[in-house]
Amino acid sequence: MFRLDILIVALGFISNVFCALSSAEEENGNGRYFIEGRVFPAEDQDPTNWQVDTRVHVNGGEYIGFIKDDGSFVIHNVLTGSYVVEIVHPDYFYEPIRVEINSKGKYRARKVNYIQTSQIIQVPYPLRMKVMSKIRYFQVREQWRLTDFLFNPMVIMMVLPLLLIMILPKMMNDPDTKEDFKQISNMAKMSEFPEMSEMFTSLFSKGSAKVNAKPKQVKKRQ
């Protein structure tokens, strides 16, 4: 990988020199120039066929370039002016670069800055377009976590009364308050669902004895 990098850098350097020497040659007679560069795919991209899905758009599709096997591209027949070169791939994001060709045929490549248009950060020409990131189109579904489950309002609703009913009386060992608390809870039970309880207990116990016994118990105590 390291060796390859050196090679690419060297190639880039050589072509840079070449361009500097032969800026006049890039013109093909009609006052037309070409923009050239090279696209480097992401490491996880399919190495055989990524070139077909990747396109080079100049000024949002005014000129369209295609990528050769080795990743290089040339946009032909470009007039002097300022162009935004972007690499379009459905899954990967590349940073766009502005290329300016002046009337003498000199090239300048720089970072695109739409807000501070006078700020110039130069980048090497011929262009070297590298993947910035894989585009994330989707929201990530939340993973199931125990804490999420415990703090779910429904679970809290279930657990909290349980705590109140079961643990609170045990914690309060004082017999008087215990008695009071029981009375209160009995009252609450009585008023809230007496019919439902009767219905269910009769359903489940299949006998009327308990049903009759229970209210009696409660009444006795009161």
Binding site: Q51, V52, D69, V74
Partner: peptide
């Protein structure tokens, strides 16, 4: 479908 060669003609 990969581009093999490309040249311009005026």
């Amino acid at each position: 479908g990969v581009l093999m060669w490309e040249w311009t003609l005026a």
